[in-house]
């Protein structure tokens, strides 16, 4: 009973939040609504008994990814409204519905066939975090290490891409030097556009 109430409550909240994210024209509203939606999604993981996954969801998405987006939005002009594509809305909704139906078919197909069996069964006397650790560090050790290398590559590329002019310290430079540097960059971008 409580599970049903929690499911419907969080389903309604998540759908509302993500609809706001998709439909709003303000970047700041979209960011805030998505952060809320991520937290509500972690509730589903807790209901489903995947405690560790829920904790990771909160830490990674609302902790790391949202902070990254917030820092990224400082670079962009987020005060003006977002301009939208002028496409036919009917086509968009029909395509979205068709794709959703296809996803349902993909997910339902193996359940109908009834042929699958648990490879790494969940045991009752072991906690979720412990069971995840056992499976992750035995059966999925190589993908885990590859994911670690991928995150390292992403970190380095993020630093290199976003951290231009890191050799110059803005706190130690004089005002005139900063003005000159900015004038330099503006001239550069204007040349780049032509």
């Amino acid at each position: 009973m409580f599970e049903a109430i929690a499911f419907y409550l969080f389903a309604a909240l998540t759908i509302t939040m993500f609809t706001i994210t998709v439909m709003t024209s303000q970047a700041l509203y979209a960011l805030t609504a998505m952060a809320a939606g991520m937290i509500f999604i972690s509730a589903f993981f807790f209901i489903l008994g995947a405690d560790f996954l829920g904790a990771i969801q909160i830490i990674v998405y609302t902790g790391a990814v949202m902070a990254l987006y917030a820092f990224g939005m400082m670079f962009f002009d987020t005060t003006r409204n977002v301009v939208e594509k002028r496409t036919n809305p009917q086509i968009v909704f029909v395509l979205g519905t068709l794709a959703a139906l296809m996803v349902v078919a993909i997910f339902v197909a193996p359940i109908i066939s009834n042929n699958i069996h648990a490879v790494y069964p969940i045991e009752a006397h072991v906690g979720n975090a412990q069971a995840v650790g056992i499976v992750l560090f035995t059966k999925y050790l190589v993908p885990f290490e590859v994911a670690a290398v991928m995150l390292l590559v992403a970190m380095i590329s993020g630093i290199i891409l976003a951290g231009k002019k890191m050799d110059k310290s803005l706190t130690l430079m004089a005002e005139e030097e900063i003005v000159m540097m900015n004038a330099d960059t503006v001239g550069h971008t204007e040349k780049g556009e032509h």
Binding site: A50, V65, L68, Y69, A131, V135, L151, A154
Partner: peptide, 25 residues
């Protein structure tokens, strides 16, 4: 009753995190 789905969810989360880092850069 299988943990494989959760494993895939973990890897999806890590992929999403690195995608955000590179994409925002």
């Amino acid at each position: 009753g299988d943990l494989t789905g959760q494993m895939f969810a973990f890897f999806i989360i890590s992929i999403a995190a690195s995608e955000v880092a590179v994409g925002l850069g």
